[in-house]
Amino acid sequence: MIKISADSTCDLSPELVKALDITITPLGIVVGGENFHDGVDIFPSDIFRYVDKENKTCKTAAVNVYEYQQVFKRLSSQYEAVIHICISADFSSCFQNASVAAQDFDNVYVVDSRNLSTGSGHVVFDAALMAREGLAPEEIVRRLQALVPKVEASFVIDRLEYLHKGGRCSTVAKLGANLLQLKPCIEVINGKMTVGKKYRGRFDTCLEAYVKDRLCDRTDIDYSRLFITHPQCTPETVALVKRTVEQYAHFDEVYETNAGCTVSNHCGPFTLGILFKRK
């Protein structure tokens, strides 16, 4: 059997992780000098409390080489092969660290998803399905590398305070966006985060326009699966997005997942994206 493992940044739900038998390696979260592990002893609600109510700064920390070695040591002895999928190397040193750790094992393979959140989650999901089919590890890795550039990941952000506190948005840009009610679309392109279209108005109204822009009149979409991923949006907002998705596309599977601490720390509670694959 082949074991699939992934960084916690893949943002797959606990139910999917269990159903697909995926091992999750948590990234670190540092709060005021105290170290936590994403999804283990710290969760997005904690991040929002620290930032909004206690005015603390939270930082993400990559999984280090030793931590990966311990995971790979345990799994490689139990399985024919281990395939680990990382957050984009342009976002974190996780891929570099995992690659170094994998050098100690003949049956561990590391894949750079060139993405984050359920953008990586698509790669992890497909890897698990391939492992179930009994494909050879080298073939799975080859197919995953071909899949990576086909994943389309983007999010709309309601508030820029979190990007500002993380150094990814200037004070002037934040104030201008707030005054104009601008909601930027953050896209992952070639493994890097870029700012796409800026929507204007209420968050829910912007999300409707965003979903239309992403799905309407497309001929290159793979309709097998779509993730709706967010840290803490209301059920009403998520229901609106689901209805809007159904207006423009018919996916075989639509999964709602909650973004983990990494996305939450950089984007804040009211962020939502639809993530899917191209043909």
Rank of each mutant, 00 (worst) to 15 (best):
C169I: 12
C169L: 14
C169N: 13
T171M: 15
T171L: 14
T171H: 15
V172S: 15
A173R: 12
K174V: 12
K174S: 14
G176A: 15
G176S: 12
A177S: 12
A177H: 04
A177Q: 05
N178S: 13
N178I: 11
L179A: 13
L179M: 14
Q181M: 04
Q181D: 02
L182C: 04
L182I: 03
L182D: 04
L182H: 02
K183G: 01
K183P: 00
P184I: 01
C185H: 03
E187C: 08
E187A: 09
E187N: 09
E187F: 04
I189Q: 11
N190Y: 08
G191Y: 05
G191M: 08
K192N: 08
M193D: 07
M193Q: 07
M193P: 04
V195T: 05
G196V: 01
G196M: 00
G196N: 01
K198A: 00
Y199L: 00
Y199K: 00
Y199E: 02
R202S: 09
R202V: 04
R202T: 08
R202K: 13
F203I: 03
F203A: 01
D204I: 08
D204K: 07
T205H: 12
T205S: 13
C206Y: 00
C206W: 01
L207M: 09
L207E: 05
L207I: 06
E208S: 06
A209E: 01
A209Q: 02
V211F: 04
V211H: 05
K212I: 06
K212Y: 01
K212P: 02
D213R: 02
D213W: 00
D213E: 06
R214Y: 09
R214M: 15
R214D: 14
L215I: 09
C216F: 12
C216I: 14
C216Y: 10
D217M: 08
R218D: 06
D220K: 08
D220R: 07
I221H: 03
I221Q: 04
I221N: 05
D222I: 03
D222N: 06
D222W: 01
Y223H: 09
Y223R: 07
S224E: 03
S224T: 03
S224W: 01
R225W: 03
R225A: 02
R225S: 04
R225N: 05
F227M: 11
I228L: 10
I228E: 11
H230E: 09
H230G: 07
Q232L: 15
Q232A: 15
C233N: 11
T234F: 02
P235C: 14
P235Q: 11
E236Q: 13
E236D: 10
E236P: 07
T237K: 02
T237S: 01
T237Q: 03
V238C: 11
V238A: 10
V238S: 15
A239K: 13
A239W: 10
L240C: 12
L240Y: 06
L240Q: 10
L240I: 09
V241E: 07
V241P: 05
K242A: 14
K242T: 11
R243F: 12
R243G: 15
V245N: 07
V245C: 08
E246P: 02
E246T: 07
Q247S: 10
Q247W: 03
A249W: 02
A249V: 01
H250Q: 10
H250S: 10
F251R: 08
D252A: 11
D252Q: 12
V254M: 09
V254R: 11
V254E: 07
V254Y: 07
V254W: 04
V254G: 08
Y255F: 12
Y255A: 15
Y255G: 15
E256K: 12
E256Y: 08
